[in-house]
Design a protein around this nucleic acid. Structure first.
Length: 726
DNA sequence: AGATAGGGGCGCCAG
DNA sequence: GCCCCTATCT
């Protein structure tokens, strides 16, 4: 196949242009993934470089996977050797190999937000810091902000009368030192440490400059300062740096992204060649007209005009609901309508909202109306207590200096080690500069009851035992044994709460994910698994094959497309969201632009007159953004409610009337097929493959199914983890 | 030690 | 509405 086939003129020139800095402005839906795919293949074919000499950076792991798949179609299995990944995953891989040069152990842990917070809390405790009402979480946020701006601990000077500033000035250096002591890096460090490494060791930088002969970066408008520096340093030898992006879609300034990176690219990288992809292949003319009208109202943007070849298409439907239940109900009925009239499938729809909190009511209303739906984001699988607990064991085993992991599990499941015992242990550890785990070898020297000493020694022996068998069996076998012997299942079973079934199912699902990891990686290891898990994003775990309505935030929708898109919560204060009244709404407007341009054929915009905020019902005005859409592109929705009355759902959950509440509690993060499982039905499971249901206990998506799998035999699995065929 | 109930406080968006 | 912290009880 010719690598230039099927491209328009600009796309073709952009693919063919290989030498030197290249900036590709790619409007929404203008085929930038197409260009990136062709370009990678073209570089390999025409320039006779090895696939491993190419570095391609994407925004999510999912995008990386897709890019790899598409390159594979051109150059076959060699595509596997192209370095494709997110900034974070590429940096993590690099650090695994090189981090010892800057004084870290290569078994470093990766700390997520919860771990960071736990570490900050332990610093506050160890140093008897008076918080003056400041929350540890705000300090965490401030530190992260400083890291994104590349302000080092020693360089931050607090404004005198701002308590958060003063506390941060004091805690930031302690925090950074603590990370190093426990052998951990946070998400921001993943980007910063390679920079430090390169600055201190020019030879190592040189090595990577030589490896990465061609560098391509997608979504360049959302890169931050460290990412910019990484890209500049790595491309400094060959200068073959190609960035793709759209300043109108820059939506991450709140976490340090600098739109100037793309706007000033041609100044920063001299002799840069600029291409503009302005033909939109995704949306109808009406949709594009609305989106363009919106984004034109922004001051700070590069001038460009997107145009579409498609037909005019339908008007944008405006839904004005009375409250959020009504809003959800009307969306549900519009979905059913579209399916009836235009023969659409559930998976053709996406509902986008500004805040995750909006998903709760939506999910309830959709599910009651038997509309299959999937929520992307919210409480993530790997952030659930039971999962984090088990992973903390894994982490302590991989890196036994990981004090945060240690604290999490020292008494989970309960083994009689309480606050007093732990305090004594921590004091001893700090006094002698030991890690908490190391301290377990000195229990005899600590002043505590014999019972406490026994419990601590027991814990040490348990961990030791896991350590000892590690080298003798595969990671998968080992993980199974660990989870088994920990007694986590028993612990959560006896917990007895409504959630305990759910927790047990999640533990099984964790084992499935481990099996999955082991089957797709050449050399599965504990460390490798932990790293993969740490860097998973919401979008990554989305099964886009499932026939269900997708629900997610505007931010998560970046890069995706759907035939029909609902943008809900079009209310002042919610979207654009209420924050500093001083600040302009430019980024919120770009977010709106991103939302609108996800749609291929049809858009619904909905608002509600009243909404519940922090428990009270408030009146909301319609979003000022609505007035920015040319009126001739809008029509009022005339949806009649043909769905289960939303008000009835609400009442039944508030009053103690006769209508029985369903006994299943709605699960907050995963919804699945509404088809009720019955014995005899065929199912498929992500890991175990095809099987047949032989027994059903409970109902709905949390029903316990006994399934006979064709290859793996009989297993018990919760309904939501299998796909029901038929 | 550890579970549980009650009260204060307030935020988004995410690797 | 929900999370986190603290007080209180077993």
């Amino acid at each position: 196949m010719n690598l230039l086939d099927g491209l328009n003129d600009v796309q073709r020139s952009a693919v063919e242009f290989l030498k030197g800095p290249t900036l590709i402005f790619a409007g929404a839906g203008s085929g930038k993934t197409r260009v990136l795919t062709h370009k990678i293949a073209y570089i390999i074919e025409k320039q006779f470089v090895y696939p491993r000499n190419i570095l391609a950076v994407t925004f999510t792991n999912k995008a990386a996977r897709e890019l790899k798949e598409r390159v594979k179609k051109f150059i076959g299995h060699r595509a596997g050797q192209v370095n494709i990944g997110t900034f974070h995953s590429i940096c993590a891989r690099l650090l695994r190999m090189e981090i010892e040069h800057i004084g870290y152990d290569k078994n470093f842990s990766i700390y997520d937000a919860a771990d960071q917070q736990a570490l900050i809390k332990s610093i506050i405790r160890d140093n008897n810091i008076d918080l003056e009402g400041v929350k540890p979480n705000s300090i965490k946020g401030k530190i992260s902000y400083l890291k994104n701006e590349m302000i080092e601990p020693k360089d931050f000077k607090a404004r005198k009368f701002v308590p958060l500033d003063r506390l941060t000035e004091y805690i930031y250096p302690l925090y950074q030192a603590a990370l190093k002591r426990v052998g951990a890096v946070d998400f921001d460090d993943l980007l910063l440490l390679p920079l430090i490494l390169f600055k201190e060791h020019p030879k190592i930088l040189r090595k990577y400059q030589q490896i990465f002969k061609y560098i391509l970066v997608d979504e360049y408008q959302d890169t931050n300062i460290p990412q910019f520096q990484l890209v500049s340093m790595l491309s400094d030898l060959h200068k073959n740096i190609c960035v793709v992006g759209d300043d109108d879609q820059s939506i991450y300034s709140w976490r340090g992204a600098k739109v100037e990176n793309i706007l000033k690219f041609d100044k920063t990288f001299p002799n840069c060649r600029v291409f503009k992809l302005e033909q939109n292949y995704r949306s109808t003319k009406n949709i594009l007209a609305a989106a363009s009208a919106i984004v034109k109202n922004n001051e700070n943007r590069a001038e460009k005009t997107l145009w579409a070849d498609k037909e005019k298409g339908e008007l944008i439907t405006q839904i004005e609901a009375s409250d959020e239940w009504d809003e959800s109900g009307r969306m549900a009925s519009s979905i059913l309508n579209e399916i009836r009239q235009n023969k659409r499938n559930f998976k053709d729809f996406a509902i986008l909202y500004r805040t995750n909190a909006q998903s709760r009511i939506l999910e309830q209303v959709l599910t009651r109306n038997r509309i299959p739906n999937v929520i992307i984001g919210g409480v993530r699988f790997y952030e659930r207590k039971e999962i984090k607990d088990i992973l903390a064991y894994f982490r302590l085993l991989a890196n036994n200096r990981d004090n945060v992991a240690f604290q999490r599990i020292i008494n989970t499941p309960t083994r009689g080690i309480g606050k007093v015992t732990l305090d004594k242990l921590i004091e001893y550890a700090n006094l002698n500069d030991f890690s908490y785990y190391e301290t377990l070898n000195y229990v005899d020297e600590m002043k505590m009851s014999a019972r406490a000493k026994n419990a601590l020694t027991g814990f040490r022996n348990l961990i030791k035992q896991f350590q000892d068998i590690r080298s003798t069996i595969t990671f998968e076998e080992w993980a199974n044994i660990v989870i088994d012997r920990l007694g986590m299942r028993k612990y959560f079973k006896e917990d007895g709460g409504e959630e305990s079934d759910q927790r047990l199912a999640n533990i099984d699902e964790l084992l499935n994910s481990i099996a999955d990891y082991c089957s797709k990686v050449e050399e599965p290891t504990l460390e490798g698994y932990l790293e993969e898990v740490a860097l998973i994003t919401d979008i990554d775990s989305w099964d886009d094959k499932k026939n269900a309505v997708s629900m997610m935030t505007f931010h998560s929708a970046k890069g995706l497309e759907f035939p029909v898109v609902f943008l809900c919560g079009m209310n002042k204060g919610l979207f654009p969201i209420q924050r500093d009244p001083e600040e302009s709404n430019e980024e919120e407007r770009r977010l709106f632009y991103v939302g609108l341009t996800r749609a291929m054929e049809k858009i619904f915009l909905s608002s509600a007159e009243t909404r519940n905020f922090r428990g009270e019902n408030l009146r909301y005005e319609i979003s000022p953004f609505m007035k920015e859409i040319p009126f001739e592109l809008l029509e009022k929705g005339k949806t009649k409610e043909r769905v289960i009355s939303p008000s009835r759902i609400r009442k039944s959950s508030q009053t103690f009337n006769s209508s029985p509440e369903p006994t299943t509690k709605l699960d907050k993060s995963v919804s699945d097929s509404v088809v009720d499982a019955m014995p005899g039905m065929m199912v498929s499971h992500k890991i175990f493959g095809a099987g047949k249901i032989i027994n059903v206990a409970g109902f709905g998506k949390n029903a316990k199914l006994t399934i006979m799998f064709r290859d793996s035999g009989k297993k018990t699995i919760i309904a939501k983890y299998v796909k029901i065929k038929s």
